[in-house]
Design a binder for these strands. Structure first.
Length: 798
DNA sequence: TGTTGGGCCATA
DNA sequence: ATGGCCCAACAG
């Protein structure tokens, strides 16, 4: 028997199945979807069996056998294997990348170079001997200091280099103690009178014959130590066994079940439409303003799916996967829910994944990659906040969870719900065309009014001599809420620029030596950092160019705002949430819960606070500068701004108390800002569609972004140029090719970057042409040191 | 003449 | 990707 294996080597010439002989001994076990260790060249690598067949076209004498099966049950089923092939084609990625992204990180291989002793200890050089005492190999990282000596031995053949493939995380095991079944057995056991601990434990055993208990529990309950347990086990009073167990990431066990809420009229209509379509591969776009109760519809449709004995996937943007959200699902579905998010360790994620694979859970709530949950009988897929760009992975494989969801829905004949208050233009356009069915929720579920949004013209403020970052109106409102003991959220729209260092004498801005971008000032570490290559250096006291001492920090970071805020309201208790304060695990939740408990008056943060915040006492939201996303050189700039403003405004007045929002802007007349004020999505959509049509961007055109990099500027420019000429020859005349041009950040890590953009409406040869492009890259440019990356349907083209 | 290093090639 | 192989350059 022959196995087709996709090996774990991400390179163009390797991106195809390799045939391996299946050893007789494992023939009955081997199945597609299993991981294997195989010899590849002169090393061993991990691979996935994608197919099993009777014979191979490859010379049978040169066929190598599979070295080892890594699984007893396949980690990928037939559906996911098929989907990987489709993903490979659609996103132009390596098949191995597509396969790897579908399994939890814990199952991906970790390679470790090591040196194996191939002779008697006495035969090798004396200084090396201590390293090999009591073991047959040492790891490369432990042997750096004797590397030269090792090399000598390797030439003699007494030591050989080897790569070891390890699984990153193992199944967690717990020690179970099984007490003897009858009292009679226990009574025959003799314990010395002074062995107090053993007697104590025996007392417990006598009361719990035939019971099984986890040893750590037993230690606590009986008040004895592990050796005591072992001595009684030795005497035959109990048995020890290892049992597989799951890591418990959070103690969410005593959550009370909550019943469904009564649906409003609009919710009921939407629910009925979806319910009628269960068991059909249909996509719904659920457009509901913030607070209109989309989640309740999700919960109740999932409930219907469970009643049919099927499973459901609920995707949410990583950032909104807050405990609040998790709890809501646990309340409704109890331990039928698995939760997958980035806060979990690799082991914890693996455990959640195993629960899905073993069909121990019926619902998974998770971020992007949860779309690959290995359910066999999927009944529903939901993407909440469907417009979020985090649903698109921004490195290979550059897949969009929405596309994967629709593919799976066709495979399983089940519906997809895309939910959003501000749908992506692509999805809304499809709904308009009838490709998706549009469901609308126009009112808030608890009938609260929308927050009262005021747009503040910051140019006016400047003219009136207010040079601070808080307008008079916003500052007054903050003070007012402070008096009323209500809470404020301040949102700093920071994307696009950050704090940099500028010399006031010569105008020098500190740049990264490897990249074409300015360094960012980090106050917490007093360092200048490059966000692209990780370069850092100490903050200078004088200008590196002209030695002037007049250097200062520019830009608005959250820390800067915090300082300014202290001047406006010195008595306020402020919580800051940004990359600096949320670096540690669980910090995000800690800050949010502290704010929820009223331990602060003001929450100040960046993008990350735009979602998931749902506290009744927030009555004021301030957007410090609405413009920063607006003027980015990206076709989605207006869409992103509209979405962000709507999102942020929705944080205010979610309960009984009405909310007020102040949006500060230097371009307050822009339609993305004025239309977000009253959540006028339709007018915004019409307006923005006109712009997209005029400039030839999605949804009118599909876009492909191709990026080239090389150490040498001339080479990369030439490569880009040749490619564009090639594309023009291949693609249809209606297709537009923009560029080539230098990327916005034209150098990263000492490599120059060029890009070009393909815009097309209909291009049947597109995938073929892209594959052709890769072939050319492989034969002509790869060895020159150039890289090529293709991004189909990019979320941004910067 | 032995040693180091870059281009090239195959990987089943 | 990555190790092996071959040839050429280079110091001894």
């Amino acid at each position: 028997m022959i196995a087709e294996v996709i090996v774990d080597v991400a390179a163009h010439p390797i991106d195809r199945p390799f045939d391996y002989a299946i050893p007789k001994a494992v023939e009955v076990l081997a199945e597609p979807g299993m991981r294997v260790k195989v010899p590849f060249g002169n090393r061993k690598v991990l691979g996935f069996i994608t197919n099993i067949k009777q014979s191979s076209d490859f010379d049978p004498k040169r066929l190598k056998p599979i070295h080892e099966l890594m699984d007893v049950t396949p980690v990928l089923n037939e559906e996911l294997l098929q989907m990987a092939q489709w993903m490979k084609k659609q996103t132009v990625c390596f098949e191995i990348d597509a396969l790897q992204v579908m399994v939890p990180a814990a199952l991906r291989a970790k390679y470790e170079k090591r040196f194996v002793l191939n002779a008697e200890l006495e035969e090798i050089l004396p200084p090396l001997r201590p390293y090999f005492e009591n073991r047959s190999f040492i790891r490369l990282q432990d042997a750096v200091e004797v590397y030269a000596l090792l090399k000598k031995e390797m030439d003699k053949g007494t030591i050989i280099a080897d790569t070891d493939i390890q699984q990153q995380t193992a199944v967690k095991k717990v020690r179970m103690i099984h007490v003897a079944d009858t009292i009679e057995v226990l009574e025959t056991i003799e314990i010395r009178a002074n062995a107090k601990q053993q007697l104590k434990l025996m007392e417990y055993f006598l009361k719990n014959t035939g019971q099984s208990i986890e040893s750590s529990q037993l230690q606590k309950i009986a008040g004895v130590s592990l050796p005591t347990i072992y001595s009684l086990v030795d005497k035959g009073a109990a048995q020890i066994s290892n049992m597989e167990s799951y890591r418990d990431p959070k103690l969410l066990s005593n959550i009370e079940h909550k019943a469904s809420l009564k649906l409003t009229g609009a919710q009921q209509i939407a629910f009925d439409r979806i319910e009628a379509a269960l068991n059909t591969p249909k996509t719904f776009l659920l457009h509901g303003i913030t607070g209109s109760g989309k989640t309740e519809i999700y919960l109740q449709t999932i409930d219907q799916v469970l009643k049919q004995g099927k499973e459901a996937i609920m995707l949410v943007p990583e950032i909104s996967l807050t405990p609040q959200m998790t709890i809501r699902f646990k309340e409704r579905f109890g331990d039928q829910v698995a939760v997958l998010h980035s806060g979990l360790s690799a082991g914890e994620k693996y455990d959640e994944w195993r629960k899905i694979q073993r069909a121990e859970v019926k619902v998974v709530v998770g971020a992007r990659s949860a779309i690959f949950a290995p359910f066999q009988n999927l009944g529903l897929i939901i993407l909440d906040e469907e417009h979020e760009s985090s649903y698109k992975q921004d490195d290979s494989p550059r897949y969009h969870a929405r596309d994967m969801a629709i593919w799976r829905s066709e495979y399983h004949k089940c519906p997809v719900i895309l939910g959003s208050a501000t749908p992506s233009l692509e999805s809304y356009a499809r709904a308009q065309k009838g490709v998706y069915e549009l469901l609308v929720l126009e009112k808030r579920a608890k009938n609260q009014p929308l927050p009262d949004v005021h747009i503040v013209d910051m140019r006016e403020e400047l003219r009136n001599g207010n040079r601070s970052m808080f307008s008079v109106q916003l500052a007054d409102a903050i003070r007012d809420r402070l008096e009323k003991k209500q809470q404020t959220v301040l949102f700093l729209n920071k994307r696009g620029y950050s704090s940099f260092v500028l010399c006031r004498d010569c105008g020098t801005v500190m740049q990264c030596p490897n990249c074409d971008i300015s360094l960012t000032y980090h106050r917490s570490s007093e360092m200048m950092k490059c966000h692209y290559c990780g370069y850092d250096e100490r903050v200078p006291t004088t200008c590196p160019e002209c030695e002037s001492e007049h250097i200062r920090f520019f830009g608005t970071g959250t820390q800067k705002v915090e300082e300014e805020l202290a001047k406006v309201v010195p008595e306020a208790r402020v919580l800051r949430m940004d990359v600096d304060t949320t670096r540690t695990k669980g910090a995000h939740e800690k800050i949010l819960s502290a704010f929820g408990e009223g331990k602060a008056d003001i929450l100040l943060g960046t993008q990350m606070i735009a979602k998931g915040l749902d506290f009744p006492n927030i009555t004021l939201v301030g957007v410090l500068s609405a413009d920063t996303t607006l003027h980015l050189p990206d076709f989605r700039a207006a869409e992103k701004t509209y979405q962000l403003l709507t999102q942020v405004s929705g944080r205010a007045g979610r309960d009984v108390l009405p909310g007020t929002v102040f949006v500060q802007s230097y371009t307050p007349e822009h339609y993305a800002i004025t239309l977000a004020k009253d959540q006028l999505y339709e007018p915004f959509y019409d307006r923005e569609m006109t712009m997209r049509r005029a400039s030839g961007y999605p949804p009118y055109y599909f876009v492909v972004n191709i990026q080239f990099t090389h150490e040498d500027l001339m080479t990369v420019a030439e490569y880009a140029d040749q490619t564009v000429r090639y594309l023009k020859g291949q693609l249809s005349p209606n297709t537009l090719i923009i560029g080539p041009s230098a990327s916005l950040i034209s150098r990263v890590n000492n490599r120059y970057r060029y890009q070009c953009l393909i815009k097309y409406k209909k291009e049947s040869k597109l995938i073929d042409t892209m594959q052709q492009l890769i072939k050319i890259h492989r034969t002509e440019w790869l060895k020159k040191g150039a890289t090529l990356s293709i991004d189909m349907n990019p979320t941004s083209v910067m």
